[in-house]
Nucleic acid binder design. Structure first.
Lengths: 154, 154, 154, 154
DNA sequence: TATGAATGAGAGTTCATTCAT
DNA sequence: AATGAATGAACTCTCATTCAT
């Protein structure tokens, strides 16, 4: 693409960024919705949410997530709040699942805090994950489940 | 401070950034070394490492950590590798502690991966932690320990 | 031209300076080569070299010579040596002509020194020459020849 | 000397430059006056003027001449005209001597132009003269005389 | 709609000058 | 008078944006 061409399609560079972030978050939400519509037990649902989140973070067409996590300061206040709302909705969907696991004793922390810590752990993978190192997204998902979620106590 | 004053003390803006990052990492390493020199069981040591890390991340004089985590791209390759080395040393010190907990069955993941996930979880707190919300660094430390570390199985 | 426009075409202000100096010296060399290819006696050749040099110094598109003479310190060592090489080649071409005149007794000084003095005399004209004062470049050329070159002794 | 100390003695850096240039030109004029007061024939006087000028250009304490020749643009208009007046007086003193030589047929050019060319030739020596190369100021003076001045025709 | 040279606001940097000590 | 940290105007350069083609 050539230097002036962007402005045939977007009002500004930040407008493109905003579009990409919004579009990316909406598709991530849609992908996640499919997971949530399947009726599984909480542990299975969480596993699928994590797997889906890794796809969103690390799969192809995932650059938007870098933008959501690290470039929000380039947006206007209004745009930033729209993206924050989408991100909030996305993360809020995990709460009931985590709540159920916490109630069952499988997750040993207050859910709001646990959710922040879990998203921190997962999101940072964009910095260190390297598919060439031989670990698959499924392996990663297994490791995360093992780390955070305990077997249901009798 | 006025526009030209910086250059009385530093060759360039990036030279200041580098100094701040280096100095901050060295003091974080020193603080952590004190924790490691105390002889405690692995769980207590980890708790103190986490508490110390939260101090480094969220205490006063902690802005350098934002720089280390998010501004490394402004450095030269050489500078970046120095900072990466310091960060690597800092994080490497956690490995034996995590290893011992993993051997005891208290940490259910491969240590290298667990370490990445744990640092992700902790480091992201600079984005959401707000001391005005009433949670203390000690509370945070307790939550992290509860979330990641299990009671020693009999 | 506006402040940023330069950088569409040149990497830096000094890169422009270097291009102008190099291009100017190459065209001066080319102009001089034409003079040298004509087969004339030494005195005629020298007269034409001087006339050509005044054109290079004082004609239109001659600002580059100011740069070559007085702005070389803005260049990198490498660039400066390229320009110095071109200037050296340019001035070296005068040596055989001066040598022939010296051998004939028309130039009463060691050629290397005479060349330095002659170029000093000519080049300083950029400081004082004013076409509005009524002196032409041909007048100037005649004066220089008369001053430095004697009639061939019988 | 330290960065602020200059301003204990001079109002500005350019004020120092102006003082140095003025002082240097006055001492050059004084030195030249001594030459002119001795009663010699024109050729001898010119030789001594040239020798004195080389001392002024190339001897110790001669940096001011670089400033006079190449840094005048840093001065205010008023200061520049004072320096130009001193330089004009200095060069004007050569006119009668050159005039006499021209009348005698020893200098083959109009005196005003010859003077400009001669000063150009001499002044440029600050760029190329190197005492380590083994040429003395006396050698230089001899060469200049030989180049410009002819034996008196019978 | 696409292009890329031109624009200009803003960032980074230099350096002559000021000023508290 | 001497010092050197601080100042700020001026300069170089970057890059998002504009615009004539």
């Amino acid at each position: 693409m050539h230097s002036g061409s962007l402005f045939c399609h977007f009002k500004s560079k930040d407008a493109l960024l905003y579009e990409v972030m919004q579009e990316g978050m909406r598709s991530a939400l849609a992908r996640q919705m499919i997971v949530l519509l399947a009726e599984h037990d909480a542990a299975t649902t969480l596993r699928q949410l994590i797997r889906s989140h890794f796809h969103t973070l690390l799969g192809s067409n995932s650059d938007f997530m870098q933008a959501v996590l690290y470039e929000s300061r380039s947006l206007t206040t209004r745009q930033r709040s729209v993206i924050a709302k989408l991100q909030g909705d996305y993360e809020a969907a995990w709460t009931p699942v985590l709540q159920e696991l916490a109630s069952a004793g499988c997750l040993q922390a207050e859910v709001p805090l646990a959710r922040l810590l879990i998203f921190g752990a997962l999101n940072r993978s964009v910095q260190w994950f390297d598919p060439k190192k031989g670990t698959s997204l499924d392996d990663l998902t297994d490791a995360v489940m093992a780390l955070f979620i305990r077997k249901k106590p009798r």
